[in-house]
Every structure is written in C-alpha cells, then in structure tokens.
Amino acid sequence: MQPAAVPDDLTPLHPDYLKVVRIGWTLLAVPVLIGAAVLEIAGVLPRGAVLVPVLLVAAFAVVLVPPRRYRARGYRLDPDRLRVVRGTLFRSDTVVPFGRVQHIDVAQGPVERFYGLGTLVLHTAGNHNASVRLPGLPHAEALEIREAIRAHVLRETP
C-alpha cells in the first residue's frame, strides 16, 4: 500500500530548462570556487582542505542534483486549472484554479532568454502559495497560457 506520488499524466518541462538550472548553479558556484582557490594558493590550511570539499559540493549541485529535480518537475494544464508538481525529497503538488488567479506574470531571466524559455507566475489572494511559479516553458507557450488564463478569467467575470 504505497501509492506512488510520481505522477504519470504530467507534461515535463522543456529539456533546455535543465541547462538553465545548471548554468544558474554554475554561476553561483564560480565565486565560491575562486575563493576556495585563493585560500588554497595562500596555503593557510593543509593542502586540499578547502578546495576538495568545495569542488565536491559544487559538482554535486551542478552535475547530480539538477537532472533529478528536473525529472521531478511537471505540470498539467486543464481548461480551468493549472497543476504544478515539484521537489525530489519534499514533494509538492499544487493546483491553482483559474477562477482564483489575481494576476499573471511571465518572467524571463537572461539565461532563460538565451534558450527562449520563460517562467509563468500565477498570483492568488491566498497567504499560502501567494504566487505559484512554473519555470521551463518555451516563452511563446508561457504567453499562450497566460492569454488562455486571462480569457478564462474575463469570461467568468461579467
């Protein structure tokens, strides 16, 4: 009796999103690596005491974690609701009914722009899940979804 939380009816994110995440982590890791290298060259601590652990952690964050997290992500677009699933260790499965959407953003960072991706952000009036983010959509598709949700909201509101 262990119903798998791994959802089967979900749409995966665009494969390029994996690259976006990796580049993001790399950009974060570079300054730390430089700092560790400086410490290493300064030779204050025993050889490898700083650089080796930092390298291991960076490799873990850039190489191993993103694919797992990517595989755990997915979404499902229904005529009146959006479902967003994420998380490897702590899984979260959120549904936002379009009738509760207050406003919609499509965000695009520089790396996302390079790959033509975008992040859809739905804002609700709730304190919990006040904004639900769905990254890794092709930018055009994110815009399309935004229009569809807007049309739904307009149709329902006289």
Binding site: D93, G126, N129
Partner: peptide
C-alpha cells in the same frame, strides 16, 4: 479557498501519507 497543495516529505512518501495545504485569502 484559493489553492490546494499536497505536500509530502521523504518519510511521508515512503509511508503513504501527505499533508493538504489550502491557501486562504488572509490565512492558511
């Protein structure tokens, strides 16, 4: 209610239970 979320930690997944969290305008 505004949103509905099902949350599971590692233990919860193994043991087959979950939390349900509702977003409320002004609360949770």
């Amino acid at each position: 209610l505004q949103t509905v979320e099902i949350v599971q930690g590692p233990l919860a997944r193994r043991r087959g239970y979950a939390d349900v969290v509702f977003g409320i305008a002004g609360g949770t």
